[in-house]
């Protein structure tokens, strides 16, 4: 459990948020042309990093807005929070 600095609301308990998993997985532009392997890669395969990870979060019990976060999964330390559409910071 930790405190997240929501880019819209400020610091709130992590329990107010829900995690949307790995960030920057781009939705296929032409889904009809995807092979089964490419679908599996898009839908299921994850880096599941132990260390610095880019992920999506939603302030579910607050402003309900989505945003991105850079967090170290080995110690839950948050390195950066940035809005959807913004360029990911270099960590």
């Amino acid at each position: 459990m930790f405190v997240i600095n929501c880019p819209y609301c400020g610091e709130r308990d992590q329990s107010e948020f829900s995690c949307g998993g790995e960030a920057h997985i781009v939705r296929p532009k032409q889904p009809t042309e995807l092979s089964d392997d490419e679908w599996a890669e898009y839908l299921f395969m994850r880096k599941n990093i132990k260390g610095v990870q880019f992920e999506r979060w939603n302030h579910a019990h607050g402003c309900r807005k989505w945003f991105n976060m850079v967090r170290d999964t080995s110690n839950d330390k948050i390195h950066a929070v940035y809005k959807m559409g913004e360029k990911p910071p270099v960590i």
């Binding site: 992590q14 829900s18 998993g21 990093i49 132990k50 992920e55 999964t73 839950d76």
Partner: peptide, 10 residues
């Protein structure tokens, strides 16, 4: 409900 390797839990 999030990825973590901390062996603690909330």
């Amino acid at each position: 409900a999030y990825i973590s390797y901390t062996q603690r839990g909330s």
